[in-house]
């Protein structure tokens, strides 16, 4: 069985909602996939020994950087889903703030140990595949997942 982890970073979780929508027509995934880490479906803590990690959301804080590196170390393939993960947007709108807006939010950026700039996942770790879209494109996701199910058979 394909060992999968689904992880959310900064975003709206719409890509994971889209995944749950896809389950309407793909309930066989619940049998074919070993969801080792998927908070949408179960209590999840351990994410070691994954075949695939799906990443939703952008990297905004120091803690995020640590976490995504750990995930990278514990999976064989890392797939970004949605433009927050692939391009850092729209979660990273503060990257385009003018000086006034930047000043306004700086104390929060500091307080929550956010990075100077919001990053896409590939700016931090190696990424094996990307599914674009906001939310992620259904067909592209199904194609990637089917490819992985075949590859790790």
């Amino acid at each position: 069985m394909l060992k999968v982890g689904i992880f959310s970073f900064a975003g709206c979780e719409g890509c994971v909602v889209e995944f749950v929508e896809l389950l309407n027509d793909h309930q066989d995934w619940l049998k074919k996939i070993d969801f080792k880490y998927a908070k949408i479906l179960k209590k999840s803590e351990d994410f070691t020994g994954l075949d695939v990690a799906f990443i939703e959301g952008a990297i905004v804080s120091e803690a995020d950087v640590e976490r995504i590196k750990k995930i990278r170390d514990s999976c064989k393939k890392l797939v970004c889903i949605g433009t927050c993960a692939t391009m850092g947007q729209p979660a990273g709108q503060r990257n385009f703030f003018n000086d006034d807006l930047k000043k306004e939010v700086q104390f929060l950026v500091d307080r929550f140990h956010q990075l100077p700039k919001v990053l896409s996942v590939k700016e931090v770790v190696k990424v094996d595949a990307e599914v674009q879209g906001c939310p992620m494109n259904d067909d592209a996701f199904v194609k990637v997942l089917n490819g992985l199910l075949e590859e790790f058979k």
Binding site: P90, A91, F97, L108
Partner: peptide, 14 residues
């Protein structure tokens, strides 16, 4: 609760 603040209140201005 902390939710990786994305600063929407500011982002919509302008």
């Amino acid at each position: 609760v902390s939710e990786d603040k994305r600063f929407y209140t500011q982002a919509v201005r302008g």
